Amino acid sequence: MDHMLTLLLRLWPFVFLIIMISAQDNVCLRPEMAANIEMDGLQRYFSPGVEVALSCKPGYTSLLGPRKIVCTIRGEWTKTKFMCIPKMCPSPDPPSNGELYYEDTVYQSTINYTCNEGYVLNGASTVMCLASGTWSAPTPECKSVSCGLAPIPQFGMIIYDRLIRGGTIDYGVTGTYRCRPPFALFGNARAECTASGKWTETPECRQVSCPPPENINEGFMSVSLKEEFDFMDTVNYGCNGDYVLEGNLQIVCQQNGNWSEKPSCKAPCRVDIRRGRILYRGRKLWIEDLQPNKLLHGEIVSVYCKDKAGKCGYAVSTQCIDGVLKIPECFEEPSGAAYNLYANTLPSEIKQC
């Protein structure tokens, strides 16, 4: 019994409210608000004749009207076209040397700012349209990236590609590193002030030496007598007598401590025929008139062959290669009688094909 009494006492306020509501003919329930519209208080039931003021949530502005609705005796609210639309922020301008990205300029819209390569953003990279109709931060600046003077390796230097004034260097400026002899450069010789405001990796200057160079067969070299040669030191070569130098006249001590490729001396050749006529240096010569009988390496000489079907002669070239001169297979050396008595019938003397 006591339990039931306690329960009735607790429910009494709600029972009284229901009785009071029922006592009235019609009441209005709390109106359902359209998007972004609000009203003051938390009251849930309204008597006929009660006016309620409508307003816009922060970040929105009113459009049309009226701004008030009234509870009628039928328990319904009067009609209104009142609506709230988002506030707009001013159209943004892109930063100098940068870009912006956005879809709209209404309340809670955002703008993302970026800078072109070689520039760094000074300010907010993202801003939002506030309830006040203003952006959360001013347009940022894009300031050009700069580096200090390029670091110099020990025993080295840098040569900039353009005139530098002061201690600040703009993004994109480049230069070339060099080392003072006898030091060699290890790493990238080119330097650049990058978009991060830092220089590319600095190379090193290391001392390099080469052992005494070796001589070449049938040749000589011009070199001072010393046990070590420094980086970029050079040695010249030459050949004895009629030998011909093939390759570079000069070798150089390289970065890896080795000499560049040595040249070689190539031997002369002999035209190994006893009878016949040859074409040498633009002249037709009888072989016995070639004095001395010697061709230098790389020189070309022609012998004469016969086209028996066409009954005509033609010249075939061959080249002296390091002491070897191959006589073309078509060449037929005449007999002594034919050579001495009937020279006008030789392939070199008859009609040429």
Rank of each mutant, 00 (worst) to 15 (best):
C71E: 03
T114Q: 03
P90L: 10
Y171V: 03
S136V: 04
M128D: 03
F14Q: 12
R30G: 06
R180G: 08
N248R: 08
F82N: 04
E228R: 05
T126F: 13
N344L: 13
P181L: 13
C71A: 12
V106N: 15
Y314R: 05
D307A: 05
Q291G: 02
Q207M: 13
T78N: 07
E99G: 09
T139G: 08
A309V: 11
P140L: 03
K143L: 09
Y60A: 06
F331A: 05
H3S: 13
L8D: 13
T114P: 01
Y45P: 01
I152P: 01
Q352Y: 06
D170Y: 00
I159F: 13
M1S: 12
G241D: 09
L325S: 00
R178I: 03
D40R: 03
L279T: 00
N248A: 14
I350A: 04
D272Q: 12
E32P: 06
T174R: 14
F220Y: 15
E227L: 13
K57S: 11
G310K: 14
Y243E: 01
F14T: 05
E288R: 05
G238P: 02
P212K: 05
S132H: 00
P263Y: 02
E38Y: 15
S264F: 13
E214F: 12
P268W: 01
Y45S: 11
T200M: 03
R74G: 02
S132D: 12
T126V: 15
D93L: 11
V120C: 02
N248Q: 13
M4F: 14
F331Q: 00
E38F: 15
K57E: 06
G123W: 03
W135V: 07
Y60M: 04
D161Q: 14
F155I: 02
S136G: 00
K143A: 11
Q352P: 09
L63P: 00
G241S: 12
G59V: 08
S348T: 12
C115N: 06
D40V: 11
V235A: 10
V127K: 03
I273F: 11
M4W: 08
G166I: 10
I85W: 07
P92M: 02
K262W: 11
Y160K: 13
M33C: 10
R74V: 05
E329N: 15
S62E: 14
V15C: 09
Y171K: 01
I21R: 13
W12S: 11
L100E: 08
I73Y: 07
S132N: 07
G65N: 11
V120N: 05
N188A: 15
A35D: 14
M232G: 02
G133W: 05
L130F: 04
I287Y: 01
V252G: 01
Q207S: 06
A137Q: 12
A137N: 09
G276Q: 10
P211M: 02
Q108S: 11
W199E: 06
I21A: 14
